[in-house]
Design a protein around this nucleic acid. Structure first.
Length: 808
RNA sequence: GCCCGGGUGGCGAAACUGGUAGACGCACGGGACUUAAAAUCCCGAGGGCCGCAAGGCUCGUGCCGGUUCGAGUCCGGCCCCGGGCACCA
């Protein structure tokens, strides 16, 4: 290499370091050291084949933080693993006539090597792969504990079915009536036996504890609040005329019951007459989010208002949901807009029973949902409606036809999937004994090695007699294994507990390791997991706590949601052809430049649009550092103390800014900008700098680059003659004395308008500055002679003369 | 419709508690080096107007208004973009 003009060629040294790190695993959390623990976690990826830019952004953020924390003296747990069950592996297996495992493990190997090529500081000794029996046996074990508690149960129910996936979807995965993987495929409803996790038992706590997560983004907490959807109200029983049937109705507005005009049933309601589903069929082909016209069919039957004794016609309508409340409501058109629209269309009576302070119009043109005083409400007339709610609920309870209750939008989590590549549900069905859990000592229930996947029809495991036909663990008689597998969101609900003791083969995790590492100090991932994964994992924590497995209420203290990377204004996708492949960028610019660019382009929480030319700029910057560090320093006989001071001042100011950025908002774009400024300063002063100052500035620069450009900083650190990992060096402390600016620029304003700037020594007194400013040719003519203008002085910043009247 | 974000040069952005708007970078222009180019190093640059020039004046952070000596930042109203939820009784 030419000593005078060293050329920055990252690919000449990055791979060697990557390999060395892969072998020596320098960033392993020790459990033993005196350092305080810190758990930095990035969401584990699905091994789809190769890293994409979204991964790179996620990991570059986490890695900068993890490396910084190592340098700050923490014992950092920074693990990585693979969310490796799931449908794409099955599809690939069908295509390649192979086992899903081989495709999955090959992808993992490749993506792991990419992670290593990027220099991410993962502790690879803790790698967790969810599709391996070592991991999924604990899914099964946890399932059995849940089963014992009644939190895992089986029932027949209407489920969301995606014809593309050929499997069931959780409600969370079927939002808006479309599959989360196949956004154009409408979800069908099927009735199947399914296993459920009783997440609703924790709904209240999941909601309440959101208030104990101040370091989660408000956005995520709001989304979870809405998703849980708690509504306090009352459940009331309506008798049906000439029938023993009862209809249970849920309402949040019991106060309006004297204004009820009808009882409305969802088409799926057990008392809805045959043919009611007709109403649903007609709304099946609407785009998501489109509300169909309200429609109903009168059943010919009547219910009795338990408060007024009034006869109310029973209708089946298309706008009542079976999955919420009781699947039946009372229609109070005067005080609910939906009921209003419906009753007006079918000419049912509309009677107001709550009069707001502003009064009621003669004819209602829309529902009145405001609070007020009850009218025409029997004995409750004249009461404020809020107070009446309580009184009426009490009466319903006293007379035994109702009670106060709370409805939730969230429903139990259906976890059964009719797929092969997932955790087998450890249950056996015996003709004699019924549902029999697999005994712990028979775990894991292994997935068979020889499979014939077709992608057609029912569950692949059901079709495999070697798997499904077994002896009952209880009576030894003929029995059948459950052939469904678990939703992969089960796998990701507790994987980060496993990182703390990944090789424990006696239990899912070691409570002592949990004690040291959990909760996760900092979790980093995409906003798309705001509800699914992040609710499930909170649920698991609470359930495991109640099982005595850990003592945590919440799994994650701080959550950071990174922004999306788009290109040409759209999310990167193969079908749009706007994908940028990280591997190509490494070939061209190296790993350092690639990961540093995604941090430089925008603050990490913001979306940003990919600019191809941007990486080039970072590459140029790193090359500039390279040349600066490795060119032989010019002999500077004229070395000036002033230059030395200026450069060291800049270096310490940079340190201050970086430390601040890391400890605060993580605006790494400005951290990197500060590093660029420092480099510019060293360049500008290089001919007047003493050797010692130059060396010290470069030392600080290389240490500060370590969290962002680990390869370059390690290479330079080594070439400077140090041994060992630069990433484990202590983060330099900044010296406020050195960082302090000696001269400041004071802005001089007249009436708030900038007139001039004065360079003054740092601690100049106001009187001194004021005297200079008054006589300044730009200022003096604007000050009325003889007058004493009001002066506003902000030390170190500005001086403002306030003169009344026109300033000329 | 409801709930969050967000609107600043040609572009990505910066401005932390109200105090120099546009740091840093991309793209661009000029210069140095070179036979030449690339690379590199240095310089320039928000718009408009005036000036041969040094320089000066003026407008400017989506729009309208307010508070303040002073507003990108605070308050009120509106427009636009992105995201989430959406018949939840």
């Amino acid at each position: 290499m030419d000593e005078r003009d060293p050329v920055y060629q990252p690919n000449s040294f990055e791979p060697a370091w990557a390999q060395r790190w892969a072998e020596s695993n320098p960033f392993h959390a020790t459990d033993l050291s005196g350092r305080p623990p810190y758990y930095v976690l990035e969401m584990l990826p699905y091994p789809s084949g190769a890293l994409h830019m979204g991964h790179v952004r996620n990991y570059a953020i986490g890695d900068a933080l993890a490396r910084y924390l190592w340098m700050r003296g923490y014992d950092v747990l920074h693990p990585m693993g693979w969310d490796s069950f799931g449908l794409p592996a099955e599809n690939a297996a069908i295509k390649n006539q192979s086992h899903p495992r081989s495709w999955t493990l090959a992808n993992i190997a490749h993506m792991k090597s990419q992670d290593q090529r990027f220099g991410f500081s993962y502790d690879w000794s803790r790698e967790v792969t969810t599709c391996l029996p070592d991991y999924y046996r604990w899914n099964q074990w946890l399932f059995l504990r849940f089963y014992e508690k009644g939190w895992a149960y089986r029932r027949k129910g209407l489920v969301n079915w995606c014809p593309q996936c050929a499997t069931v979807l959780a409600n969370e995965q079927a939002e808006g009536g479309f599959c989360w993987r196949h956004e154009d495929t409408p979800v069908e409803r099927r009735e199947l036996h399914q296993w459920y996790f009783r997440i609703t038992a924790f709904a209240d706590e999941l909601l309440r504890d959101l208030d104990r997560l101040p370091d989660w983004p408000e956005r995520v907490r709001t989304m979870q609040r809405n998703w849980i959807g708690r509504s306090p109200g009352a459940e009331l029983e309506f008798a049906v005329e000439n029938s023993p049937d009862r209809i249970r109705v849920f309402t949040t507005r019991i106060d309006t019951i004297y204004g009820a005009s009808a009882v409305l049933l969802a088409p799926e309601h057990p008392l809805a007459p045959a043919g009611s589903m007709e109403l649903r069929a007609r709304q099946a082909h609407l785009a998501p989010g489109q509300e169909p016209e309200k429609e109903g069919i009168f059943t010919g039957r009547y219910a009795v208002n338990p408060f007024s004794g009034e006869r109310l016609p029973i209708w089946v309508v298309n706008f009542v949901l079976m999955g919420y409340g009781t699947g039946a409501v009372m229609a109070v058109p005067a005080h609910d807009q939906r009921d209003f629209d419906f009753c007006r269309k079918y000419q049912l009576p509309i009677r107001a029973v709550v009069q707001p302070a502003s009064g009621l119009p003669d004819t209602l043109e829309s529902a009145v949902e405001a609070d007020g005083v009850l009218v025409a409400s029997g004995p409750f007339t004249g009461q404020p409606n809020r107070a009446a709610m309580e009184a009426m609920t009490q009466r319903a309870e006293a007379e035994g036809f109702g009670k106060g209750t709370v409805a939730y939008r969230i429903q139990d989590w259906g976890i059964s999937r009719q797929r092969f590549w997932g955790t087998p549900i450890p249950i056996v069905y015996c003709e004699r004994c019924g549902v029999v859990p697999v005994p712990d000592e028979q775990l894991p229930v292994l997935l068979p090695d020889d499979v014939h996947l077709t992608g057609q029809g029912e569950s692949p495991l059901a079709a495999d007699p070697a798997f499904s036909q077994i002896a009952c663990p209880k009576c030894g008689g003929e029995a059948r294994r459950e052939s469904d597998t678990m939703d992969t969101f089960v796998d990701s609900s507790w994987y980060f507990y496993r990182y703390t003791s990944p090789t424990d083969n006696t239990r899912p995790f070691d409570p002592q390791a949990i004690q040291r590492w959990m909760p996760v100090n900092q979790y980093i991932g995409g906003i798309e997991h705001a509800i699914l994964h992040l609710i499930y994992t909170r649920f698991f924590t609470k359930a495991m706590r109640d099982l005595g497995l850990c003592q945590l209420d919440e799994p994650v203290t701080r959550l950071f949601t990174q922004g999306m990377i788009t290109r040409h204004g759209a999310k990167m996708s193969k079908s749009k052809g706007n994908v940028v492949d990280p591997a190509e960028l490494i070939d061209r610019y190296g790993a350092d430049a690639t990961r540093m660019y995604v941090l430089f382009a925008a603050p990490p929480e913001k979306d940003f649009d990919w600019q191809d030319s941007g990486v080039e700029g970072i590459h140029r910057f790193l090359a500039r550092v390279w040349r600066l560090a490795l060119s032989s320093a010019p002999e500077n006989p004229r070395a000036a103390a002033e230059a030395d001071r200026a450069v060291l001042r800049k270096a310490h100011q940079t340190l201050q800014r970086l430390t601040h950025d890391f400890d605060g908002r993580w605006h790494f774009n400005t951290s990197i900008a500060a590093l660029m400024e420092l480099v510019n300063e060293i360049y500008a002063r290089s001919t007047e700098l003493s050797g010692g100052a130059r060396q010290e500035a470069l030392r600080l620069l290389v240490l500060m680059l370590a969290p962002f450009a680990p390869f370059l900083s390690q290479e330079l650190w080594t070439r400077f003659g140090h041994t060992g990992a630069v990433g484990l060096e202590p983060w330099p402390g900044f010296d406020p004395e050195l960082a302090r600016e000696e001269a400041v620029e004071i802005v001089v304003q007249v009436n708030g308008k900038l007139r001039t700037r004065l360079a003054v020594p740092r601690d100049s007194a106001q009187a001194e500055i004021e005297a200079m400013a008054r006589t300044h040719p730009k200022v003096q003519p604007l000050l009325p002679a003889g007058a004493r203008p009001h002066v506003i002085f902000v030390p170190g910043r500005l001086l403002n003369f306030v003169v009344s009247g026109p300033a000329s």
